[in-house]
Design a protein around this nucleic acid. Structure first.
Lengths: 141, 141
DNA sequence: CGGCTCGATGATCAAGATTCTCATTTCTAT
DNA sequence: ATAGAAATGAGAATCTTGATCATCGAGCCG
């Protein structure tokens, strides 16, 4: 379970942390802003401060439990780290986020970095487009 | 010249706008924050407000004269739109930004988007790494 | 189980980036 | 030149995120 992951990271197992993990696990979209997590906690009757949400998410990120994404908006979104690296496609209309992984792109990135004399440490790739209408509700969030 | 570009975009030709274009054109790094442009204007004796810099850059972006990049930092950087699309490599040590274009990656992106039922409109790809030491000064900015 | 110690929390404040407001100035067309 | 509209500058406002600090609770020890 996750309590062990928390302890492994040197973090006490507290209610706010459990609740936040729970929300990240059960989220439909799997990509949530700190605000969204905060509101969901308030709605379910928890007494939590927004500062705690940000603090905990930052700690989770440092512990490798969570990834922080900077999409076009001004807010970062957080997703549970499930092991595999992946990049993202975002629908401009409904905000839906899908994940993908492509070895061809990964390989080319390494080659390009090498050509430029860089040792690549990380990368951020986000595709923006419109998803097909049938599957695209009007801004669900 | 650029005055025609400004007029074409429905923007009056004013001193602040000309100066900002000039700085973007003559910049060594080609990738500047709004703050950096503002400071450069102040240093050269112009009386300009930071709000104007942001306002003008946003208008330039809407007019397609300028691109806004969101790198890892919290500030956006702006670069003159010179026609060719490209992506970026950023050095984690010195902040240097280099540009590249790779048709293989572009093609794969379109294919991936299609597989996911997205019509891709845009994308953001940034590689982060360390550039080779000899060419990497210690944080020049 | 009761208490101790230190990390965790929540409320508020603060910082940094960007945008808004509005009175004043500057273009541009006439 | 002049009127009308758009642009500017200064500062306030906003939004997201991190910091502060007094209080609280988790984990450990007896």
């Amino acid at each position: 379970m996750e309590t062990s992951d928390l302890k492994k990271a040197g973090l006490k197992v507290t209610l706010p942390r459990m609740k936040i993990l729970e929300i990240l696990e059960n989220s439909e979209t799997r990509h949530l802003t700190a605000e969204a997590i905060y509101r969901e906690l308030l709605d379910s009757g928890e007494e939590i401060g927004l500062a705690t949400v940000y603090r905990v998410l930052t700690q989770f990120e440092a512990a490798g439990l969570v990834c922080r994404l900077h999409l076009e908006g001004n807010q970062a979104v957080f997703e549970l780290e499930r092991g595999g690296h992946h990049d993202h496609i975002v629908c401009n209309q409904c905000g839906r986020v899908e994940e993908f992984f492509d070895e061809t792109i990964e390989t080319r990135q390494r080659e390009i970095a090498r050509q430029h004399g860089f040792s690549i440490k990380d990368h951020a790739l986000v595709l923006y487009g419109d998803c097909d209408d049938s599957a695209c509700p009007h801004r669900p969030v």
